[in-house]
Computed example of a mutant assay.
Amino acid sequence: MELVCPAGTPASLRAAVDAGAHAVYCGFNDETNARNFPGLNFSPEELAEGIAYAHARGAKVLVALNTFPRAGGEALWHRALANAETAGADAVILADLGLLDHAATHHPNLRRHLSVQAAAANPDAINFYATTFGVRRVVLPRVLTVDEIRAINREIDVETEVFVFGGLCVMAEGRCSLSSYATGRSPNMNGVCSPASHVVYSEETDGLRARLGDFTIHRTPKGQPAPYPTLCKGCFTSGEQTGHVFEDPVSLDATQLIPALAKAGVTALKIEGRQRSRAYVAEVVRSFRAAVEAQAAGLPLPQGALARLAEGQAGTTGAYAKTWR
């Protein structure tokens, strides 16, 4: 299976390629991609240089243009498509219907993948995108079991890509409004979930307090690892329960499910983490490359190699086994 790895910076792209990524995904340094944070992403010139570096070493580069264009601002996304093709991208990752149509009409030779932000989670939806816009691969949302993925693959004629490590979005991806409710910045439109400018930490007698906008979302006891400050993994009171109502602040780690995903017909395994350092990227990619090669050779998979890199030093298989709340 193809290993698709994150690159938030040119240095991370080189690190991912050198560590054994089959493909790297990245985005431009603007709101056309869903990781629009200061200090991340690529200029058109940096993208072209990164693609040349990857291609020289046998790796592919996929460009994420996976936010939804603003009314009247479509030209920015159209330029990004043209720039991706000019730079030599192997594929673009798209979510918006209008942008998919524009790509199919004006850039017919540019391979199109459907972003997880489109939340296509059944054969009818996936076949619509494939038939209408020539989509060749779909990134499945993180709400499906392995059996559901197998059933989908029996009824479609496009490749499927699934997340196997990193941040676990517990919402219907592409539909989340929690972060924008708290900060006014939308993950789906502006590319920013829990923007750093709205996060405030304070040391208190009982530990570390984390706020997003006007909301306190975590109180971490002294000496304990603090989770990433997202509302969906925050602590809430619901009825008589107070705690992580949606999901614990842990990372997705589906390493041990790689053989099952292969049998389910999955084409590509995706690692989340464009906000992570190049050292993190290199270590995760090396570990998963070893796991993919072990699976292909019928050998036992490595055990627990990435636990210390997971959020809160804990992992979950998320919805794949439906142990998810």
Rank of each mutant, 00 (worst) to 15 (best):
Y25P: 00
V63S: 05
A59F: 14
T86L: 03
S43P: 06
A91D: 05
A104F: 02
P38D: 08
A121T: 01
N41E: 13
A84M: 03
N122H: 05
F37E: 12
G8T: 08
R14I: 08
A91V: 06
L100E: 05
A91M: 10
E49N: 15
V24R: 01
V4C: 05
L13F: 06
A80N: 04
W77F: 15
A48Y: 02
R142Y: 00
V143I: 09
Y129E: 01
E148D: 13
V139N: 09
A19R: 09
P141C: 13
A7Q: 00
E45Q: 14
T105N: 14
G98A: 03
I126G: 04
G8P: 00
G8R: 05
G72S: 14
L110Y: 10
G134C: 09
D101Y: 10
R136P: 00
L97C: 02
A120V: 05
A34E: 02
F28T: 06
N122G: 06
L97D: 08
D147M: 15
A7M: 11
A59P: 10
T131W: 11
D101G: 04
A84E: 06
E45P: 08
I93A: 09
A7R: 07
W77C: 12
P10S: 15
R70S: 14
E85H: 11
D30G: 01
E74Y: 14
L97W: 07
N83Y: 05
G134H: 00
L65P: 10
Y25S: 00
S43E: 12
E85C: 08
E46I: 01
L140G: 06
E148H: 15
G50H: 08
A11H: 06
L99S: 09
H113N: 07
P10Q: 14
V135D: 02
A82C: 13
L13Q: 07
A7E: 04
A84N: 07
H22W: 07
E31K: 11
L47C: 05
A56S: 12
L76S: 13
V135E: 01
V135R: 02
A71D: 09
L94D: 11
A91P: 04
F37Y: 15
A48M: 14
P44L: 06
T105D: 13
R70Q: 15
V17R: 13
D101H: 07
L144S: 04
